[in-house]
Computed example of a mutant assay.
Amino acid sequence: MAPAAVSTNSSADDTRRHQPFEFNESVQSLVDASDNLEALPTKYNLGDTNDTRASSCESLPVIDYSALTSSDPHQRSKAIAELAEACADWGFFVLVNHGVPKELIESMFATVREFFRLPDDEKKQYEAKSTSSPIACGNFNLKSTSNETFTLWRDFLKLYVHPDFHCPTKPQPLREILAEYTERTRKMARELVGAVAESMELDRQYVEEALELDSSFQKFGGNFYPPCPQPDQTIGLPPHNDPGLFTILLIHNGLAGLQIERQSHWFEVNPPPNSMIVNVGDHLEIFSNGRCKSSRHRAVVNKERERLSIAVGNGPGKDVVVGPAALLVERDGGALYRSMKYQEYVESQLSRTFNGISILDEQRIST
């Protein structure tokens, strides 16, 4: 949901780092103020460092949530095996038959879009005071050591929604809609974690207690990408990994823009209607001792249409020290990752200087 690295390709820009959340002029107001914006303002222009070429992805795994929760043991066992393979291979999958009402999803998109339509002076009250601010909206900047600053072509809204629930006061319907949607996705993520635990022959209750899922830290992210006059010169979200266990993503009208890195190649995802995109977070990779894979991904923009996405990140309890599960360490003959408190990991990811190595890379133990 938030960049852990700011380079727009795998090899360059190792001097860049991202800054804490800031609120300058929203991209929405910039576009609204111009009748015909033909060129990017300098601060949005990444220039030759930006390379967002990607191949079409036709083989992203599809997981049937209704089969995963089925009372038919054969059907459920098959779905669990497919989920485990998807988490180990791509680290991403399409979730279908998820059971979240279409009306709730449409209301979620409508109210989030309404929030982004608010005047900048109303949204600015939610400018983050620190990386741990429970409500934040605004811009996200990249800054080089030579003090060049670039702004992402994106307006964002970030909310901490569990175990404590935070929400802006406007638009008024947002609170109730958000509470219902995040509760449903929280239960869904817990079911996915449980199914992965079963695939690793771990006791589900042991996993839930070890990760303190009753107090699971859940973060909501709304991302708005207006049409861009020079989409090849900027980016919406640079390559990054998500912290946590699973992130559940909705893309309005299925518009292309999400790109996933796999085996050093980038692939563009075109999700089918009424589906969700789910990805493995860093902490599921760590807890599984590398059986699950957290994959880098990014969001690109386009010239023709605005794009809106909603991401809900689901983690362990914020005070949990996450390391490989003890039973897996015993089975594997050693831990492949260092342990670290979840809240410290997230804050370090948001505030660290990027040197070409992600915080997940640093947690890996060389063997």
Score class of each variant (00 low, 15 high):
Thr49Lys: 01
Arg117Glu: 11
Gly244Phe: 01
Gly323Met: 00
Asn253Trp: 02
Asn289Glu: 00
Glu58Pro: 07
Phe267Trp: 08
Glu198Ser: 11
Gln172Arg: 08
Thr185His: 09
Thr15Trp: 05
Arg16Phe: 06
Arg364Gly: 01
Leu202Ser: 11
Leu202Trp: 08
Val94Tyr: 08
Glu106Tyr: 06
Ile357Pro: 10
Thr182Cys: 13
Asn279Leu: 06
Ile105Trp: 00
Val269Asp: 07
Ile359Asp: 07
Ser309Trp: 08
Glu85Ala: 15
Gln19Leu: 13
Lys187Asp: 14
Gly281Met: 05
Ile277Val: 14
Val112Gly: 08
Thr182Asn: 08
Tyr206His: 14
Arg364Asn: 00
Pro173Leu: 03
Lys78Asp: 12
Lys293Leu: 15
Ser11Val: 12
Ile260Tyr: 08
Gly356Met: 10
Glu180Asn: 05
Pro119Thr: 03
Phe354Trp: 12
Phe92Met: 04
Arg184Thr: 07
Val100Met: 06
Ile177His: 01
Ala79Leu: 06
Ala110Gly: 02
Ser216Pro: 01
Pro271Thr: 04
Ala67His: 12
Glu198Met: 13
Ser295Leu: 09
Glu306Thr: 04
Glu114Leu: 04
Gln343Glu: 10
Met200Ile: 09
Pro3Gly: 13
Ser216Met: 04
Glu198His: 12
Glu25Cys: 13
Ala299Pro: 08
Tyr181Pro: 02
Phe21Leu: 12
Thr182Arg: 08
Pro173Glu: 02
Val94Pro: 05
Asp121Gln: 11
Ser275Ile: 02
Glu85Lys: 15
Gly222Ala: 06
Glu201His: 15
Glu261Ala: 11
Ile248Trp: 02
Ser366Arg: 09
His240Leu: 05
Ile277Lys: 04
Ala5Arg: 14
Arg262Cys: 11
Val6Pro: 12
Ala299Asn: 08
Asp155Met: 03
Asp155Phe: 05
Gln205Lys: 12
Gln125Arg: 09
Asp332Gln: 06
Asp32Met: 11
Thr8Arg: 09
Ala79Gly: 08
Glu306Arg: 04
Gly257Glu: 05
Asn24Ala: 09
Trp266Gly: 11
Ser56Thr: 11
Gly323Ala: 07
Thr15Phe: 02
Ser264Met: 15
Arg53His: 14
Lys341Leu: 06
Leu118Thr: 00
Gln259Thr: 04
Thr49Glu: 02
Asp48Gln: 15
Gly333Tyr: 04
Val62Glu: 12
Asn141Ser: 13
Phe156Pro: 01
Phe165His: 00
Arg190Cys: 09
Thr69Ile: 10
Asp121Met: 11
Ser199Thr: 03
Asn302Gln: 13
Val320His: 01
Ser77Gln: 11
Gly222Gln: 02
Phe224Pro: 01
Phe115Leu: 07
Asp319Phe: 14
Pro231Asp: 10
Val161Gln: 02
Val6Leu: 14
Gln343Met: 10
Thr145Val: 10
Gln343Phe: 08
Asp319Arg: 14
Lys219Asn: 05
Val193Ile: 15
Gln233Leu: 15
Tyr126Lys: 03
Tyr181Ala: 07
Thr149Val: 15
Ser133Gly: 01
Arg338Gln: 00
Arg76Met: 10
Lys129Glu: 03
Asn279Arg: 07
Cys292Gln: 11
Gln349Arg: 14
Glu347Val: 09
Arg331Leu: 03
Ala325Asn: 04
Tyr345Met: 03
Cys292Met: 15
Phe92Arg: 03
Ser29Gln: 09
